[in-house]
């Protein structure tokens, strides 16, 4: 895909909530594009609209107005089940709280998206084991989430996000529940995936996490206030373990 064809193209996206008689503009005219193999960090305080943006990008929510094109297809007018299929095939989610099903083994958790895919049964087990291997958990295939450390849980979640070879990987505060050492490992894993060609969008409010990305988008009051390569962003100074350059 050439750089002129973005994977994600947002055009004047607005998302308005009705709270009583009042209207809240969670997203107030967002226009942005993400290209293949970009690593984007979205930063902002709570209430800045970054979570709303993430839900929209993940096709869990719809814009009130404006358009969202994913791989050149307008998702704005899709039916709920078509959106479910988009989530299944094109998007990999990584959540702050991992969201693993406690009664299933690591492998079964990773297999979950395949249940909802056409021909998902084909080689399901093998694919899940491969995905676990990619995130360095070959030895933990049959462990239950409560037998895994936080970092391992997040790796399982990443393996689950990768299993359908999605167009984009959406991570919402993926290190928010982890200690700093484990956070680093997970961020290294994201960098590795980026180098392997994945497109990653990560929401965070921590500068040192954002500094790992290629590009930093800062949001305030539902609008993008800055969109710069990481080298030109304030976060860049945290790149090497929080030491100011």
């Amino acid at each position: 895909m050439s750089p002129s064809n973005p994977i994600i193209q947002l055009t004047d996206v607005r998302r308005t909530y009705d709270v009583g008689a009042e209207q809240i503009h969670a997203l107030d005219g967002v226009t942005a594009a993400v290209y293949e193999n970009e690593y984007v960090a979205v930063m902002g305080h709570s209430g800045s609209g970054k979570s709303t943006l993430m839900n929209l990008l993940g096709c869990l929510d719809r814009a009130t107005s404006g358009t969202y094109e994913l791989s050149g297809i307008d998702t704005t007018k899709m039916s709920p089940s078509a959106l479910a299929q988009v989530r299944n095939e094109k998007i990999g989610f990584v959540f702050q709280a991992f969201e693993l099903l406690p009664k299933l083994s690591a492998r079964k958790n990773v297999e979950l998206p395949l249940i909802y895919t056409q021909n998902g049964a084909v080689g399901r087990r093998r694919r899940a084991e491969e995905a676990l291997k990619r995130v360095g958990l070959s030895g933990r295939v049959n462990h239950r989430p409560n037998q895994l450390s936080g970092g391992e849980k997040q790796r399982v979640a990443i393996a689950r996000a990768l299993i359908n070879q999605p167009a984009i990987l959406l991570a919402d505060e993926p290190t928010g529940n982890l200690d700093s050492k484990t956070s680093r490992e997970i961020l290294d894993l994201f960098s590795q995936l980026h180098q392997e060609g994945h497109t990653i969008i990560m929401v965070t409010h921590e500068s040192d996490v954002a500094s790992q990305a290629q590009r930093v988008v800062r949001m305030l009051d539902g609008q993008i206030v800055s969109d710069l390569p990481v080298e030109q962003d304030d976060a860049y100074q945290y790149r090497n373990g929080g030491q100011r350059l």
């Binding site: 479910a84 989530r87 979950l112």
Partner: peptide, 16 residues
Amino acid sequence: TREIGLRKAVGAKGSD
């Protein structure tokens, strides 16, 4: 509820 939310996020349709 969370399980249902997750299943939907990874592609489960309402009918699933």
